[in-house]
Nucleic acid binder design. Structure first.
Lengths: 196, 196
DNA sequence: TCCGAAATGCTAACCGTTAGTGTTACGGTC
DNA sequence: GACCGTAACACTAACGGTTAGCATTTCGGA
């Protein structure tokens, strides 16, 4: 339980970061498909096996920070003040995440992702994981009376909003447009909808 | 344009079918990961390159009939009588598709899919393709005044319904529950929602 | 100080997939 | 009915991501 960040952990983190940085640089310089794992390992001055000890796959090198994404989403649910409605909090978070992805600096990275089928497929599978995590967080909220199916559904819809808005010509307003639809779906899933 | 099914086309279709049947049998007998492409090709008595001339990847061997899925969905949209509302037609189709996947005979196949990350990832990416196709079909309907973003969103939601319902304990009622939410979302996306 | 474990390295392979190059069998044409 | 273009198929060899097996170094804690 002692975590004063010993040298070993620092070195490990440094190695991981060096691999990720090197990989991203090479990918952007020469293109994702044109760079091999052996290239990345050589340039980062580590063994191929070491690279795979830090990253589960070549694609994972690109989505190095996806843990953040997951955490931000679940925290938007769990860290919101009591009695605060769920969806506005999620809408704000999705707005921020979309803005982050569509910022100018991130453009080359996302273009690279769109151009590579392998990266696209990996991201889709990542989103499903995020949706499941989010669904668990929503279902765990005692203030929400919706059914498990409704929770899973809304989680899926929220992740869809992130994905769809990023592709839209005006991402910001797309988030709002889609969230209007999600709000309606959420209300329709409230218990005893006929009693309103 | 002459299509009296010449010998050549018949032989090609037979080869394709033999490969698919052999692959599915081996996968179910020994497990998806335990069977190599070279095994399938040898057992089907074709060259590996021939196998890949018929199927784009190992995973595609399992989802051999996914064209049907796409066609059934788009036809549910385009072939419905004029002025018939969109979502009930889609609900019926999703009901049928879910029933088809959760039938007893299909159980081993879907268990195999759930147990293989590669197959799961492939199916997710397939679903996104289906959602895009469906979105195009919906957006092409002149009787629907919704925005492009709303059409893409609803298409995504409908595919989500299929995916979520299959995992539910009672798939049939899950389809209905999710479609209630989708109907509400669709109405919220109708033009001038403030005028109601 | 020393031991165990974690991190890293090296080699060699496995497996899906593709390029390159022939060969065969069929369909349409004269 | 012979002929030619081409679609289908085969064979070989490789490429690239990924992993197993095993040796080595390096650190943390006892």
């Amino acid at each position: 339980m002692t975590e004063p960040t010993g040298r070993r952990e620092r070195k490990k983190a440094a190695t991981r970061q060096k691999i990720a940085d090197t990989a991203l640089r090479l990918f952007l310089e020469r293109g994702y498909e044109a760079v091999g794992i052996r290239d990345v390992a050589a340039e980062a001055d580590v063994a191929v096996t070491t690279l795979f000890a830090h990253f589960a796959s070549k694609e994972a090198l690109v989505f190095e920070r996806d843990d953040d994404f997951e955490q931000r989403l679940t925290r938007a649910v769990t860290d919101r003040p009591p009695r605060e409605p769920l969806l506005p909090a999620l809408r704000l978070e999705i707005h921020a995440l979309v803005r982050h992805c569509t910022a100018d600096g991130a453009a080359p990275i996302w273009r690279m992702i769109e151009e590579s089928p392998a990266l696209r497929e990996y991201e889709e599978s990542m989103r499903l994981r995020h949706a499941n995590t989010l669904a668990t967080a929503i279902a765990a909220d005692p203030g929400l009376p919706q059914s498990p199916t409704a929770c899973r559904t809304i989680a899926r819809f929220v992740i869809d909003a992130y994905s769809l808005a990023r592709e839209a010509t005006d991402p910001g307003s797309a988030v709002d447009e889609i969230f209007e639809m999600i709000e309606a779906a959420w209300e329709a899933a409230s218990p005893s909808p006929r009693a309103r």
